[in-house]
Design a protein around this nucleic acid. Structure first.
Lengths: 321, 321
DNA sequence: GTACGTGCAAAGACTTTGCAATGGC
DNA sequence: GCCATTGCAAAGTCTTTGCACGTAC
């Protein structure tokens, strides 16, 4: 990935240099490019090798020094993976995440999980530790090493993009679950007015779902290998399920009779609660593309909520006149 | 702690040497003693310094080599805490645990948490990693460092003992919660027979609770500073609460009327379920004193279950004759 | 007596520091 | 022209290896 968009990072770096009375040089820019142009957890030696391909005269000391600067300005994050080497990963516009490390082959898998974070936070707070970016490193042995075979080489993807993909998948999962709800409610509802409302909302829901699916596809087309990248975001399906309302209270003797006003109310409730959930969920992450996906999804739901609200108002005034 | 009981570890080590055609020497024994005589996460340099106090002629290379052997035979565990040094911690009869590390002052806190483990396990399994001892290291900044003050020096305790203490505390917590249940059930129950049963079981429960409390006190007396050591085992109080039966089903119009047979049945159910829970819970840990505490507690509950069962049988045959 | 163990020194791996020459600004 | 930067070499830190002598078995 040589022609990557690294304008923002370069700008950030140059700004950092300017502010600190440091000078921008060809070497520093080359190192920045080498670092940003490669995913994964690169050691100084790794980056040195990359830079050397472009200019044999660069010294490894400069790489050490430049990586310190990149860390200082928030473009890189220094991590130790237990093999004695200091490694660096992309930080700018990449979510803070955790690592699973195979102690045999040193393979590293990155992930985020709000659920894990919650439990961990609880424990850490008991000891008076602040939430200041606690990073979890899980050491274990991977499937391949256990079976004594080598890991298939996978193209490495930008963590930020993988996160965006998973956020879209999560949103899509919510959308399809909700679509199912609206459809089944429409099918079961014996009240024609209510049935019509659910059917209409389901149609709208479907259109929005298609929109999300298209966005996901576009993303996967842009970044090749993205669909094969392992999951990065672990979301709790059960949490999403909790957002779906139960029709128990409205079911009498196995029969569902929901008038249009009640159906609209239910749909509005659902959209609003889901929007709130996703907004809060998004806040747990650093500023990243994935977070933006979640925020946009929350907004989309609020807009849907507003549109249902308008429909309800229109119906009210129609019946009043 | 110079006069510590390290017979078992020494035996294990010598056995390992014998099996591998290695020789036991004064130096190796001294290093073993220095390692076991100090809690915490010692570096090679730390242990070297300790050994040197006894014999100035020992070389640091021997310490490196001996610690490799101690790791190989399961007495020590090698850990990296992110400061670039290889550190060693006690392993034999110490539960596998996780670390919270302050990235500023390098303070280390150890803990276990079945709940955290569950969530983590779930994630790790998704990636095909086996449960082969995944270790979590959480990096953060401790309260003291945030407030720019130094950490009060605490006597370090044997992790195994702290775990035993926490297991006892957990058992005690279960016991007192259950005592409360039996007492309140006795007080509320309008049936004299059932009331008597609950009162009797509560008395037995109290005796067992006192026994546990005595055990905890004895442990704390043996190991000074143990009561001040931070929590090591994080158990979920809510899990224990789930074991307590609800009397809702037996409450009619706010009134509780439980005959002796039903009261006995409830008590037996409670003891049995709690025994099962603690037996399973104990299995999650390596062979340690803490695990034994949990197992003994499970057995104690089974015995209590059996004794209640006998009472029930006696009552039955009495009423039959 | 054999073979491993020990402690010295030396080397190796990774990272930092000192310094004279170089090159941004 | 000033002063940070660079790349070399050198040093520093942690750990391992080589080797001659010592010692457990």
């Amino acid at each position: 990935m040589p022609g990557k968009n690294i304008h923002q990072e370069r700008e950030l770096f140059h700004e950092y240099l300017r502010r600190n009375g440091l000078k921008k040089t060809r070497q520093k820019d080359m190192i920045l490019e080498a670092f940003l142009g490669n995913e994964g957890h690169l050691s100084v030696e790794d980056i040195y090798a990359l830079v050397k391909k472009k200019d044999r005269k660069v010294g490894i000391v400069t790489v050490f020094r430049t990586l310190k600067s990149l860390t200082a300005c928030g473009i890189a994050r220094e991590i130790g993976l237990g093999d004695g080497l200091t490694r660096f990963e992309h930080r700018y516009h990449h979510p803070l995440h955790h690592h699973i490390i195979c102690t045999r082959c040193n393979k590293v898998i990155e992930f985020v999980s709000p659920e894990l974070e919650r439990v961990q936070q609880e424990i850490v707070l008991k000891y008076g530790f602040q939430q200041a970016n606690p990073r979890i490193q899980v050491y274990g042995v991977c499937q391949e090493c256990l079976e004594q075979r080598s890991t298939p080489e996978r193209p490495k993807c930008d963590t930020g993009k993988v996160f965006a993909r998973d956020a879209l998948r999560m949103a899509l999962s919510m959308r399809s679950r909700r679509l199912e709800f609206y459809r089944s409610a429409a099918a079961r509802n014996l009240d024609p007015g209510g049935r019509e409302v659910f059917a209409k909302v389901a149609l709208e829901e479907e259109a929005l779902a298609l929109q999300l699916a298209a966005e996901l596809e576009a993303l996967q087309r842009r970044e090749k290998g993205l669909d094969e990248a392992p999951a990065f975001l672990h979301f709790d399906e059960a949490e999403l399920e909790k957002l779906i309302p139960s029709l128990q209270a409205d079911t009498v003797a196995g029969e569902l009779r929901l008038g249009a006003p009640r159906a609209l109310e239910l749909a509005m409730q659902l959209e609003e609660r889901a929007a709130g959930f996703f907004r809060q969920y998004a806040e747990k992450f650093d500023e990243t593309e994935g977070r933006q996906v979640l925020e946009r999804f929350a907004e989309q739901q609020l807009r849907h909520h507003a549109s249902i609200h308008d429909t309800a108002q229109a119906m009210k005034s129609a019946s009043a006149s």
